[in-house]
Design a binder for these strands. Structure first.
Length: 588
RNA sequence: GCGCCCGUAGCUCAGGGGAUAGAGCAUCGGUUUCCUAAACCGGUGGUCGCAGGUUCAAAUCCUGCCGGGCGUACCA
């Protein structure tokens, strides 16, 4: 049940005789900002009164008279300059919450018109170890895919690995010139990482016009690395063999991380997969005069003042624009999606703007292309973390630290509930709590803001964190253990819900908002809408837990009712966290 | 130069036309015969970068300025 949508629909009906464009005003119905005003508020009377040259309270009264929701709402009140304050009837609220227990969708109906989404996320350069910079794309993309799927859409996840670009030229150059063969035999992934960083460091830096350091394109090593890339792309046997030798180790490394993060993909078509299609793309774009030769390269031009996008370099190598174009065509042919979502750092905004522009000119007009951009990862001091240096801030060690921090908190906790657990169970709890903390720290932040990487903040386990939700969940489950409650029976035959005190009512109201929170998160592609909702829910539940005895409730009916509210809360928390890719534990 | 983004409490950030601007952390104080204190309750803390404008109503929209980040032809 989506309460907000119901109220807005009814408001729109009520407005149909009053306003010319009711839809423009029905959106002005929102959850109340202050609970003293009620549960929801409609702010449309003021602008409408202005338009009709009437007094706002008069219009508000007219709206209220036409709003036929007597079974849903208490009589609405009009306050201040013309706010219409709405409060749900307790009986109605109780019935709706009870209805949520049926099935496993928690009142969230699948969308009426399912769409097909391709979600392109994570996409690391596999030539180097995964870095905290890869975290955002990976977990935001995974969360969006989970959410869209739950809402009933068709979702294809595709990890567009960087397995064919310049970074492999660097590896090839490093392998040929600086290889430590015994190190490679012992730890191929580690040696490849070392080579990558080593070669990068050899390259000269120049100071540009803005006085900043940047890489010198004329540096001999940079040129040599580019030449290795070009040879690989043109089918050089030696380079191709080396590449094939490197790849399994690269896969192994990223797979290990994905297993730990509980992230998986339907497809892993890296850049190399599209390599055979690239020459065709360039040929076609030239044929249609979308691309032209320019300064020895092949480029697509935009406005006078805008810089072009290269689809083939002077040395013959293709660029990631070319690969992305081939990828779009492949995805269209393969899955015929309504939309492709690219979960990528905002710094690639221009690339996607150009890419989408080229796709339109190429003739693909219907497909929705979205750059789901997110702020870049900054270091503790606020400067962007360089992914090129390759040192420090490795994803793997971050996860280890998070799990260790969770273990420390756990060991300090003297709770009777957890004192008897086996080592294996404890390790599992540390892992779930630690990884959850890292994921949540990222997901709870507004996607579009820059992300200041703070180990302390990421490992925080109080406040608005996954741990807080997991803890609320674990305490909740403990009630059912201690009471020997059969949840299945209760879910099949839910008892009536009684709202006798404010804490019960607030909890019921918050539970009913789950559906809308998911829709907002999906509409804006913002997982933070889910974390915000869960934080409110868990806080509301904590108030309930504190003040409302469940097993020792005054009457059997009240006990049943509260058990139902508890069970529903646990299920919503668990499902909400699940949509974020975060797990729960039964005790902690 | 041009383009995109950001400036809100000591710190990290929500809110992006609506009532007295919110939260977490930090700080100060209180709560455990009671289903997990990884919890709860309360206090302190704000010229919403600055200046104009639009509006019944601006932190929110528009313009300009100041400060910061990022991008801008052969990295991805």
């Amino acid at each position: 049940m989506n309460v907000l949508a119901l109220l807005q629909r009814k408001l729109q009906e009520a407005l149909s005789g009053l306003a010319n464009d009711p839809a423009a005003y029905s959106g002005m119905l929102k959850p109340a900002q202050d609970t003293r005003f009620g549960d929801y508020q409609a702010n449309c009377a003021m602008p409408l009164a202005k338009q009709l040259d009437k007094k706002p309270p008069e219009i508000a009264r007219a709206i209220v008279e036409r709003l036929h929701l007597e079974d849903v709402l208490e009589p609405p009140t009009i306050a201040g300059p013309g706010f219409i304050n709405l409060k749900l009837r307790d009986e109605w609220l109780a019935r709706q919450v009870r209805a949520m227990t049926k099935g496993d969708r928690l009142g969230v109906a699948p969308v009426e018109n399912p769409r097909t989404f391709v979600v392109d996320f994570s996409s690391p350069n596999v030539a180097k170890p995964m870095h905290v910079g890869h975290l955002r794309s990976t977990i935001i993309g995974d969360a969006l895919a989970r959410l869209l799927r739950f809402l009933g859409h068709n979702v294809v996840t595709d990890n567009h690995l960087g397995d064919w670009g310049t970074q492999f030229g660097i590896l090839l150059y490093g392998y040929k010139n600086f290889l430590d063969a015994s190190a490679f035999a012992a730890d191929p992934v580690g040696e490849l990482a070392r080579l990558y960083v080593h070669v990068r460091k050899q390259m000269k830096k120049v100071v540009n016009a803005q006085g900043e350091e940047e890489e010198d394109a004329n540096d001999p090593i940079a040129q040599a690395a580019r030449a290795e890339t070009a040879k690989l792309h043109s089918g050089d046997t030696e380079n191709l063999n080396l590449w094939q030798q490197f790849m399994p180790h690269c896969y192994e490394e990223i797979e290990r991380i994905y297993r730990r993060l509980d992230v998986c993909f339907d497809h892993t078509h890296g850049e190399s997969f599209y390599q055979p299609m690239l020459a065709d793309v360039v040929r076609e774009l030239r044929l249609h005069n979308i691309a032209q030769e320019s300064e020895g390269a092949v480029a697509v031009f935009f406005g006078e003042k805008d810089s072009p996008a290269l689809i083939q370099k002077r040395d013959g190598a293709f660029t990631y624009t070319t690969t992305d174009l081939a990828t779009i065509r492949y995805r269209l042919e393969q899955w015929n999606p309504h939309a492709i979502l690219y979960v990528v750092d905002f710094r690639q905004g221009l690339h996607f703007k150009q890419l989408f522009d080229i796709v339109r000119r190429w003739g693909y007009e219907k497909i929705e292309l979205q750059h789901i951009s997110f702020g870049s990862v900054l270091g503790e001091e606020g400067r962007p973390i360089s992914t090129r240096e390759g040192t420090g801030a490795l994803l793997d060690s971050l996860l280890n630290e998070a799990v260790a921090a969770a273990a420390r908190v756990y060991e300090q906790n003297q709770a009777e509930e957890t004192s008897q657990l086996s080592d294996e169970e404890r390790r599992r709890i540390h892992e779930v709590v630690g990884i959850g903390a890292v994921k949540y720290a990222d997901l709870s932040q507004n996607r579009t803001s820059d992300y200041r990487f703070s180990l302390k903040k990421m490992l925080a386990m109080d406040g608005n964190t996954a741990t807080y939700m997991q803890y609320a969940y674990a305490r909740n489950r403990s009630i059912f253990r201690r009471g020997n409650i059969e949840v299945a029976a209760m879910r099949n035959d839910p008892p009536p819900v009684l709202l006798t005190v404010g804490e019960e009512r607030s909890l019921a109201l918050q539970l009913l908002r789950f559906h809308n929170a998911l829709l907002v998160a999906a509409a804006e592609y913002k997982p933070s809408a889910i974390t915000g909702y869960l934080w409110d829910l868990a806080k509301t539940y904590s108030g309930f837990f504190q003040n409302c005895p469940v097993l020792k409730a005054e009457t059997a009916e009240l006990r049943q009712s509260r058990l139902l509210l508890c069970d529903l809360t646990a299920r919503v928390i668990q499902r909400g966290l699940d949509l974020l890719g975060i797990r729960t534990v039964e005790r902690m």
